[in-house]
Computed example of a mutant assay.
Amino acid sequence: MTPHVYLLGTADTKSDELIYLRSVLAENGVQTLIVDVSTSRLSVPADISAQTVAACHPDGAAAVFCGDRGRAITAMSEALERFLPGRTDLAGVIGIGGSGGTAIVAPALQALPIGLPKILISTVASGNIEPYVGESDIAMIYSVVDLQGLNRISRAVLANAANAMAGMIRHRYTLPPESRPAIGITMFGVTTPCVTEAIRVLAHDFECLVFHATGSGGKSMEHLVAQGVIRGVLDITTTEFCDFVAGGIFPCEATRLDIIARTKVPYVGSCGGLDMVNFGAIETVPERYRDRVFVRHNPFITLMRTTPEECRQMGRLIGERLNRCDGPVRFFYPEEGFSQLDCPDHPFYDLEADEAFRDALLATLQQTADRHFISLPLAMNDPAFAQAMAGELIQLFKEN
């Protein structure tokens, strides 16, 4: 079947832009299909009509063409998410839209496999794009002007996106055959030595995929676990729980570790970065925290030491999550500190807070033959600690 780049947009209002994208891609020898995701009942030219897409909604097209804009956008988004992944000729996707069109298109793009080229040109791409990108590899491009007809700005932006897509199509990366199982590893700057040593131990037998523990990193890792790409997890850096508990800027979601529980993949976790909450520049730190211990990581990030009570909350929270995991679980506790900042003569050294986490975790965790707590008289970044964690993951793979 001939491969196509799908051009997604509300053709009742964005027809000129979709046709222009098609013309630029045609100049590059790329074939396209225009997919209308309008929620009006207007009949507009498109290769795939809005009625065809809407029919994929579980409740049929009537759920989309309901006359209520908010409900219609939500329903069309759900219909598109069901329509798009089943297309066997799909070589890439370009979506365009304002706030409504972006809301329709983004979830469907998130559902597509990582590595499939996907571009989203949007009027909201200069703001917080996390809800639109999620754990996917969507390339978002800010439209600068509103997508309301063609002009000198919109033509340039659309042409750049189309040419970028053409380049991705021409130079498609092909995954080599899998020779080693992939494992996910979480890292922060303050746990880098631990992760580096763990990779050294694991690299011969595993492909190590490292995720920056900034909220989206943990989600991305678990997303790939759910897809079966990642076969085991070395969750060295669980710092996202700090921001979840204390309101920092890099929180995990309430569902953190749920995918680990559901898939039962081998899991080895630890306390990396549980000594710190992340905020933006110092002036953005909430007033209620002004008397706490801080480190200015850089002009844009301020770190705050966690208290014994916050550590107790995290111990209970992580313990409850681990109790849901019926697969092999090991949780390592570094008795001499959780990060590069949590060691003697460093600003976050606080064994009372660390031990509050340990005590709460032990009081909550239901240890079984497959779920163990392991305490070592080492710091997080001691090479021997990384070697112990990596060795345990290797053993779990041998046993499972």
Rank of each mutant, 00 (worst) to 15 (best):
G100N: 06
P193M: 04
E335I: 00
N323Y: 00
F331I: 15
D345V: 04
R87N: 06
G232P: 05
S15C: 12
A111Q: 12
E310W: 12
T39G: 06
L147Y: 07
I185G: 14
V285K: 02
F397D: 14
R22I: 03
F385T: 15
A26R: 13
I249F: 09
G315L: 10
E355W: 11
T196A: 02
L25S: 02
A61N: 09
E130S: 11
D258C: 01
L90S: 06
L351C: 14
N278M: 12
V44Q: 10
D47H: 12
S126T: 15
M221I: 11
T191R: 02
F241V: 11
S136C: 14
A108H: 10
V293N: 02
V105N: 10
R312F: 13
A161D: 00
I260C: 13
L109W: 08
F338E: 02
T307C: 03
Q110V: 04
L361N: 11
I394A: 06
A161R: 00
L84N: 01
G60K: 02
R312C: 11
L303F: 09
G97H: 02
C208L: 09
P113I: 13
D68L: 07
R324A: 04
T364H: 05
I48G: 08
S23Q: 15
V124Q: 10
E130Q: 12
E17K: 10
A198P: 03
M140T: 10
F65W: 15
L234M: 05
L21E: 08
C242M: 14
P344Q: 12
T284Q: 11
D146R: 00
A46I: 14
C66G: 05
G218V: 14
P377T: 06
G149P: 08
C252L: 13
E197D: 04
R312Q: 13
E352K: 15
A390C: 09
A111E: 12
H171N: 12
D47I: 08
V210D: 11
I318K: 06
R180S: 03
V30H: 08
H346L: 08
D359I: 10
Q367G: 03
Q366N: 05
E392K: 09
R316Q: 13
V30C: 07
F373C: 13
K398W: 15
M221A: 13
N278D: 08
V285M: 01
A125Y: 10
G248M: 14
D36R: 07
G269H: 05
L21T: 10
L322T: 00
D16K: 13
P85G: 01
I282E: 14
R82K: 11
L8H: 09
E336Y: 02
S77W: 03
L120N: 07
M168W: 06
A213I: 07
T263K: 06
V195A: 07
I199H: 03
V44F: 09
D342M: 11
T52S: 03
P377N: 07
T52N: 04
A198Q: 08
A388I: 07
T368D: 04
E399C: 10
Q366W: 00
G280K: 01
L112D: 08
T13N: 00
S154R: 05
G97V: 04
A11N: 12
F250I: 15
T32V: 09
G29Q: 14
A203S: 07
G215Y: 13
